[in-house]
Computed example of a mutant assay.
Amino acid sequence: MLTGMIRVRHTLRLEPVSRRWFEQAVLLLEEILQETRTSGSDILLADGRVLPDIKLVDGKHLQAGAVYEATDAGQGRFVVREWSRTSGIRITLSSEQDGVHVAGDIALHSVVRPKVLEARGTTSGRGDGAWLAQGEGRACLRLDRWWRSVAGQPVSKAARFARRWAATGIIGIIRDQLRRRIRLAAGKTPQTASVIVDSQSIKASETASQEIRGWDGGKMINGRKRHLICDHHSLVLLVMVTPADAQGSLVARELLFRLAWMHPEIAIVWADSAYAKNGLIPWAKKYLDITVKAVRRPPNTKGFIVLPRGWAVERSW
């Protein structure tokens, strides 16, 4: 009989996650569970449906000492050790299937503002069919350190004000007023009736997750794409950022919809030939009453050339 021990170490890479989204998701899940109730051993959802594959066998629902058992394949048991929004949630679990016994403990410190998520467990084989003799694992995710590392350096007071102004629209108001003054000083009308739209793909930093980046096969760039609308003096009206694999003609539908909502005086939008795809031109005319005019490259030309009216966007990058 051969015996031995194997030790395995594995590292997981965690992609950046919005802190606000994570906290709201945890609160929502906790609220959904809080709305459940029991009828005998059955657990009922808020709409009266029975939660399948789990029964309450001892204690009071969602209180310390409550014991739940899984009724699907395998033998599983869950015990609530602590359940509180302020101090946190801690649950122990155990199950046995195919000769393998698994025991673990999961703890989330504070539900309102999660700070630490801990998990640890052990496995042990029983019987001839057990594929694992013994195993043990632990994990501790300190969420405050995680979000600090994602954010990089501490946010300055000026940056906090800038984010607050951007969220409330103050920066947009300042931008529009500055554009009006510059146009009036140049002897133009305060509002323009025609604009130029274009996009540019740029490389994303290493901290950018796969969900927000894409591959631009034409430019051979893995990163983000910024879509910009400006007037003929290169003064910006609207900016939108997407993964680099997004097609400009498809993104332009949302971009032009925002433009028509914020600047109803716009009647003409100049763009390169890439924006003539996917039926953008008739769609913009039918639903937004905006005429999209595509500027095509001169025939038999190669490489980068400045298209008529396109130079205004190039100055804005």
Rank of each mutant, 00 (worst) to 15 (best):
206 E>H: 14
302 K>C: 12
76 G>E: 06
153 Q>M: 02
116 V>S: 09
232 H>D: 13
83 W>K: 02
298 P>T: 00
307 L>R: 03
243 P>E: 13
142 R>K: 11
173 I>G: 08
254 E>C: 07
137 G>E: 06
32 I>G: 11
306 V>D: 10
222 N>M: 00
6 I>H: 09
142 R>N: 11
145 R>S: 15
64 A>Y: 09
52 P>T: 05
90 R>M: 05
114 P>R: 01
270 W>Y: 15
277 K>Q: 13
201 S>Q: 04
138 R>Q: 15
120 R>P: 05
209 S>T: 04
258 R>K: 05
209 S>R: 03
195 V>A: 05
68 Y>F: 13
191 Q>V: 08
310 G>S: 06
87 S>F: 12
232 H>W: 07
187 G>N: 05
172 G>F: 14
178 L>Y: 10
263 H>P: 00
146 W>D: 00
116 V>M: 07
153 Q>V: 09
230 C>H: 01
307 L>F: 02
303 G>F: 13
311 W>I: 02
140 C>D: 04
271 A>W: 03
104 G>P: 00
165 W>L: 02
286 K>E: 12
186 A>G: 06
204 A>W: 04
178 L>P: 00
235 L>R: 03
230 C>I: 00
161 F>G: 06
209 S>N: 10
284 A>E: 04
297 R>D: 04
228 L>T: 04
190 P>Y: 12
137 G>Y: 15
12 L>G: 04
90 R>F: 05
185 A>K: 13
230 C>K: 01
257 F>Q: 08
316 S>I: 03
277 K>M: 10
112 V>A: 15
138 R>F: 14
277 K>I: 00
4 G>S: 04
314 E>L: 12
190 P>N: 05
129 G>V: 06
182 I>M: 14
75 Q>K: 07
244 A>W: 05
91 I>H: 01
147 W>P: 03
145 R>Y: 14
181 R>G: 09
42 D>Q: 11
157 K>M: 08
116 V>D: 04
75 Q>H: 11
219 K>H: 09
15 E>Y: 11
151 A>Y: 08
13 R>P: 00
139 A>D: 04
269 V>R: 00
204 A>M: 04
52 P>D: 07
28 L>T: 04
160 R>E: 05
46 A>F: 09
51 L>K: 00
207 T>R: 06
9 R>E: 05
193 A>E: 08
53 D>G: 01
8 V>Y: 10
137 G>K: 05
144 D>Y: 09
257 F>I: 03
126 R>M: 10
287 Y>S: 09
59 G>T: 00
33 L>M: 10
177 Q>N: 06
200 Q>N: 11
80 V>D: 01
145 R>C: 14
66 A>W: 02
140 C>H: 08
163 R>C: 06
75 Q>V: 06
44 L>Y: 02
211 E>W: 13
227 H>V: 05
3 T>F: 15
20 R>L: 08
278 N>C: 12
246 A>M: 09
259 L>E: 01
283 W>P: 10
35 E>D: 12
34 Q>C: 12
193 A>D: 08
151 A>H: 14
10 H>M: 07
239 V>A: 15
238 L>H: 13
210 Q>D: 12
65 G>N: 00
20 R>F: 14
311 W>L: 00
38 T>S: 12
255 L>I: 01
175 R>T: 03
77 R>M: 04
205 S>Y: 12
52 P>W: 10
128 D>R: 09
83 W>D: 02
190 P>V: 09
79 V>S: 10
72 D>M: 13
119 A>T: 01
